[in-house]
Write a protein that binds this DNA or RNA. Structure first.
Lengths: 132, 132
DNA sequence: TACTTTTTGACAAGTACTTACCCTAAAGTA
DNA sequence: TACTTTAGGGTAAGTACTTGTCAAAAAGTA
């Protein structure tokens, strides 16, 4: 990940904000565009790197790897690498990551409900997105 | 908001991704660092611009205004401006925004649970964050 | 031998996000 | 008169995010 200037104003203020706003705390962990999407796809079970790439077609490999690394170092995702050639790496949600299930479900439900209002509904039911 | 190059690869791919992944759909609406934080603060009732600024001390005015505008144009937030001097503007959640309550609650609950594991818990209970 | 497969790493370049600083309007107050 | 208040707008500059392209490693297959 790109290094962040530690001394900037926000960085300092964030210290206190983290202790005041739970959402701010969560955004530090899974904020950004890709992380929730990645976590959601892992909700249905562990996936190989290439499976994730297929499941999230519009993410670049760069982003996928980068965010998986961050998620791993934040303890939300477990990485298992088999020492074979070609490489075989699987990612899955850790217990801590699994604790995000209600959040991801709430997100998906909102999207499904909101998407249904359109002429051509985007999604039908939550069943389309099986959970392990 | 800064204009987005419509012809980029992701933009095109997003079209299809939106119809496949509900989380992607939601991230298009409230993705990013600040929006969930703003929405969370509006959960406890409508707020004046200056109240929001106080409640979220580390956001710059630029960001606050920009995201409020986007949230308004996405129909999640209502803006009421009284034609007085000095200006008096209040923001509140629309019905559509209110529908995000379960999402925001799930987020807050996760943060509270996760924060409790630390030596010095970040938050105590959800009661600290009253909801209208 | 040449090509394929899988999971990345390195680097350069472009795009988006965020900040910092200065400015306004018009009434009320000192 | 001078200063304060509120809700932003404008511009420039810095920082972070994202992409695109090139490359490796080592076994298996044509």
């Amino acid at each position: 990940m790109t290094k962040v200037k530690e001394s900037s104003t926000i960085q300092l203020n964030k210290q206190t904000a983290l202790q005041l706003c739970p959402i701010t705390y969560l955004m530090e962990k899974i904020g950004g565009y890709w992380k929730p999407i990645i976590l959601f796809h892992l909700l249905s079970g562990s996936k190989r790197y290439s499976e994730l790439k297929k499941a999230i077609p519009h993410v670049t490999e760069k982003m996928l790897v980068q965010h998986l690394k961050q998620l791993e170092s934040d303890g939300l995702v477990s990485r298992v690498s088999l020492p074979v050639v070609p490489p075989h790496v699987t990612y899955s949600l850790s217990d801590k990551g699994m604790a995000l299930r209600p959040v991801l479900h709430a997100m998906a439900n909102w999207a499904i409900a909101d998407g249904k209002k359109m002429k051509k509904p985007l999604f039908r039911t939550m069943k389309e997105f099986p959970v392990k």
